[in-house]
Every structure is written in C-alpha cells, then in structure tokens.
C-alpha cells in the first residue's frame, strides 16, 4: 500500500474518532463515527483484507449507523448537552487514555527490539507458490485439469490477472477450522433478534412506579 494512502486513511479515522468525542450533537457524532469507520475500512483494504474492509463499510456505515440515527431521531434528542463537564471527569478522561497509550507504545517498543516486521508484497510469484496448497488431486495423486480445480487455485494462478481471492480464503478458513464458532454466531444472532423483539414490545400493564 502506498504510504501516502496509509497516512490519509489513518488521519481520517483518527480525526473521525476525535470528532465523535468532541461534537455535542449526537447526530454529528454518529456521522463522525461513520467517517472514522470509512478510514478504518481504507486501512483494511490497504492491508489486502478486501472482504473485511467491505463488510466494515456495509455493516457499520450501512446498518449500525442507520440504527443509531434512527434511535436518536426516535428519542428526539435534538437538544445539545448543556451540562458542563465536571473537571474531575475531564481529568480522568484525559489521563487514563494517555496512560493506556503510553503503555501500548512501551509494548510496541519492547516487542520489536532489533527486528522490524517487514511488509512483504504479495506478488504473482508468491501467489503461484501458495496455490500449491489448494491443488486438487485425483486418486492417483496427479493434479486434476484446471477446469476442475477450486476457485482459490484458479484465481491464484490466473495467467492474465492473478488476484488474491481473499473472500474465498476467508470462507475456506471459516468452514474448515471455525465451523462450530460459526454456528454459535448464528445462534447468537437468533437470540439477539428474539431479545430485541421482547425488549421493545410495549407492555400494556402499568409499569411499576419505582423502576
């Protein structure tokens, strides 16, 4: 990835985060959150994680932001926070993140003494080599013709334009190594859906006054 693009998207995501904390109006905060997530998605795509980047935009900027805006509008929170921040909480809000940041920096410095993790390009030659893991063989151990190979192999060894088939590879990893967690995720989503319906159902009984 170009270094310039990295700094652009890193600046975008950090600026979005700062605006999210600093802006008083909740709607502006939600839009700043989207700005931050778009920057993060750019960083993901720069790291060759195309699928995760696209899902980040679809889920956060598409679904979650709409939910937030919808709830803000529903509750009619147009009045801005007029309450002054207490100085103790401002102090805590500045000092605790700074301590955390110093700690993270210390760990990064300590973890890479001498050797720096190098960014290795994923080029045509290395993709050809890694495609060997995905070759399909017939019963005699000979490689099948190209038309019967998997999509991952075909995409990695394409003559004209070899691409990193990262969606296929993530699917391959999920269904091969993370089959049970995937089903737990499905159950989690179902339980969350039922829970939301139960929570937001308006009860006609009089709510207890001392709630």
């Amino acid at each position: 990835m170009d270094t310039l693009a990295f700094y652009l998207f890193a600046f975008l995501s950090v600026a979005g985060g700062v605006l999210l904390v600093a802006l008083r109006n909740p709607v502006s905060s939600a839009l700043a959150m989207v700005l931050s997530f778009v920057g993060l998605a750019g960083l993901f795509i720069g790291l060759n994680a195309y699928f995760v980047g696209i899902v980040q935009i679809l889920v956060y900027a598409g679904a979650i932001m709409v939910l937030f805006i919808f709830i803000i509008m529903l509750l009619d929170l147009n009045d801005e926070e007029t309450v002054k921040f207490r100085s103790s909480s401002v102090l805590a809000g500045i000092i605790i993140p700074l301590l955390l940041l110093a700690q993270i920096l210390g760990v990064i410095q300590a973890g890479h003494q001498g050797e720096e993790a190098e960014f290795e390009e994923i080029d045509v030659a290395s993709m050809k080599v890694s495609a060997e893991k995905f070759v399909r063989n017939d019963d005699d151990g000979k490689a099948l013709p190209r038309s019967e190979q998997s999509a991952i192999y075909k995409s990695l060894t394409h003559e004209k334009s070899p691409k990193l088939p990262d969606t296929n590879l993530i699917g391959h990893t999920i269904f091969k190594s993370y089959n049970f967690p995937l089903q737990v995720m499905g159950a989690l989503l179902l339980v969350a859906t039922i829970g939301v319906v139960v929570l937001s159902k308006r009860t006609h009984k009089q709510a207890p006054s001392e709630s």
Binding site: M1, Y7, L43, I104
Partner: peptide, 22 residues
C-alpha cells in the same frame, strides 16, 4: 510502506480516543 508498528500505533490511538469518549 507503513510498518506494523504504525498500524499498531493508529489502533492504540483509536482505542484511547474511544476510551476517553466513554
């Protein structure tokens, strides 16, 4: 190209901003 440390720094920065907001 940006190194791993720079990505970790951006990530730590975002986490600290989120914590400050909370």
């Amino acid at each position: 190209m940006a190194s791993l440390n720079e990505f970790l720094f951006v990530s730590g920065l975002l986490f600290a901003i989120g914590l400050a907001g909370v």
